[in-house]
Write a protein that binds this DNA or RNA. Structure first.
Lengths: 237, 237
DNA sequence: CCAATAGTGTCTATCAGACATTATCTA
DNA sequence: TAGATAATGTCTGATAGACACTATTGG
């Protein structure tokens, strides 16, 4: 039999396939806290529980896994997130009561202000402080995914400036440092934090300043290179 | 409707599900070269092409994704690999001619000698030098997965001693360094390489020595901590 | 002895941590 | 001016790179 006939005769229905979903842990930073977006489930299973934004891959809508994750986030936030990174696939026979299932998890970052309008229009969706979210009984294994995303971001905070994508386009260095400190779970030394960012040339001064404390702080923008840059040495945790 | 009735009435058949497979990039080191295990496809699609060891998740045999990957590797090598790490999920509508499909890719390491008997008993499976494999027309998107695994291992070689799992239980430091150098794609400085391994206490002397060149080299074993340890600073690429 | 590979001593360069200091604002 | 936050200067410490050196083998 040649390949063409094989493909014509191939019937997916003959196989018992796992369910496939995508789920995203979308973080943002707002008024001094790390927030994560949760959606209240309106359907079984785990009806009423809070869960990560996500759902089944739709073969007609999604050309690949990342598009599926982006689509789900767009449906809940109204915007395309500026940073999305795959965490990994989690699949086993027990994580979904409906049967053997696989979810492909993503970690994502967005500026709070950019998606506030979109979120407020969807009543089942809201930001939780990350700490509070960790205490909730999330649907499926989403507590585990949240934990994994949190740990991934902690690492990123030690060797990159990626967390900056959770801030508005213009932000101050003290702001960025506080965000990194929350992710890392401890204080960072200002001097080291700033020195390496400057030396690597990852930020662009806007020229403007903003006052939060006493002295106004310079506003910066992420340069495109920031997305890929990693420092060869980690900061102390 | 309560959850129980929902689950009773839920029929997976009502949904169009993607195909789900696992594929592993199994590396080893033998006589100065990095090798990767390939399997010649005996079925459509891509009949006759070389491919990564893997296949569909079997819901009755596999309790989770990693078990599925381990099972497939066991079928081809006869052994349980000592190191297996998820690379990520790759899913889209075009990677498999049979339709929308997802593969969960793993990178794995094994000592060449440990699985030689198992491999020689399976005629469709053999080691290729990694460089040669990269030039083949592999099935599906396996060339891409191989590339991703290679890059992941390159990084590991810069900040860990994980590549050691591709060596026999007892190995010499020059051997380990040569392996790291192949992964990194360039020379490493012996002094730095050895110093950091010693300082972190990642290896255990066996007391025995082995001669390859002139002076015999001390034999070492990986300590368990090696699996998790990462250096805070990368070696120069 | 030489050639070859294994392994070390030691200096320098780089970059993070510590911590004092200066700068710029409000009240 | 005091108090607060922003930002920098400068020293120290850790660790990687460079490179010369010693060690151990066979021929």
């Amino acid at each position: 039999m040649d390949e063409e006939s094989y493909l014509r005769s191939y019937r997916k229905e003959d196989y018992d396939l796992p369910l496939v979903s995508v789920d995203s842990v979308l973080f943002t930073y707002f008024s001094g806290a790390l927030l994560v977006l949760l959606v209240q489930r309106g359907e079984h299973p785990d009806l009423g529980h809070w869960s990560l934004p996500g759902g089944y891959v739709d073969q007609s809508l999604d050309s690949d896994l990342e598009s599926a994750a982006r689509r789900k986030l767009r449906e809940k936030t109204g915007v395309d997130v500026p940073y999305l990174e795959q965490l990994g696939a989690y699949g086993n026979q027990s994580r979904d009561k409906r049967g053997w299932s696989v979810t492909v998890a993503y970690a994502a970052l967005v500026a709070h202000q950019d998606c506030q309008p979109g979120i407020q229009s969807v009543s089942d969706t809201r930001w939780f402080s990350c700490d509070e979210a960790a205490t909730l009984e999330l649907a499926f294994d989403h507590a585990h995914l949240l934990e994994a995303a949190r740990e991934r971001m902690r690492q990123k905070a030690l060797y990159s400036v990626l967390p900056g994508y959770a801030l508005p386009e213009e932000f101050t260095l003290p702001e960025l440092q506080r965000l990194h400190e929350i992710l890392v779970g401890g204080a960072l030394t200002t001097k080291s934090f700033r020195r390496r960012i400057e030396q690597a040339g990852l930020l662009e001064e806007t020229g403007r300043k903003r006052r939060e404390g006493a002295r106004p702080a310079m506003l910066y923008r992420l340069k495109d290179r920031s997305r890929e840059h990693t420092f060869v040495r980690n900061l102390e945790p």
